[in-house]
Amino acid sequence: MTANTPDSTVSGKPGYPTDVYLFGTCLLDIFMPDAGMDAITLLEREGIRVHFPMDQSCCGQPAYTSGHPKEARDVARAQLGLFPEAWPIVVPSGSCGGMMKHHWPTLFAGEPEEALANALAARVVEFSDFLLNTLDWQPQDQGQPAKVAVHTSCSARREMNVHKTSWALVDRLQHVERVVHDHESECCGFGGTFSVKHPDISGAMVADKANSLQNSGAVEFVSADSGCLMNINGKLAKDGNTRFAGKHLATFLLERTGGKS
């Protein structure tokens, strides 16, 4: 299924893709769908056709990291047939991308779908990585001068090795000053079911993360991971903070470049 067929012609650069799949991820689908739409808009604006297979649901990560690989495999299996063309599979989440790219091959090792899972894994690209390194996104920042902090998910940082891509994208915005927050490389405490299995420890971690982001001098923060965003924003809101919150990177980039009116 095709989300849109843009009229604009596709860039003639070699290696520049004409079409991509978007794997929206379940968290984003249900809790922050606007970020998904914003990612699509950004990609389309660069002349890419974005395909969103309507039968997609979840990469299987929640069960996988909770010790239930069979259930994870069944859920992941349902996604394997949705990406028949050789296009890149863009994932607006480091952790879901990490699951698909690095854990699907393990999950399907020795299964009939092994080769298919490996082939799909090889095509998975995290959203910020795609925007920066494949599209070489060159924005025209139309926003007011602002200081912004970036929180990179641990999967993006350590599994996908793309922690510098979000920085680089934000740094390309002419009027944005990216500020570094205290213990920037430290986990926000989400960790999927960790946050509900160990709420005391997870709560201490997210409290520290929320504090250091607020004390960074930034007016808001961005992240390319919906799990971290829900965790940190959920904590900030619980503490009654109405002035400081995080946005998905796609939403932020689109806002800054006049794509959201």
Binding site: M32, G36, P199, V206, G234, K238
Partner: peptide, 19 residues
């Protein structure tokens, strides 16, 4: 979850529906 966060609340429309 709600020990540390406001409740997780689904958006009015899912990404599937918006598309």
């Amino acid at each position: 979850w709600t020990q540390n966060h406001v409740p997780m609340k689904p958006a009015a429309k899912t990404l599937h529906q918006l598309i």
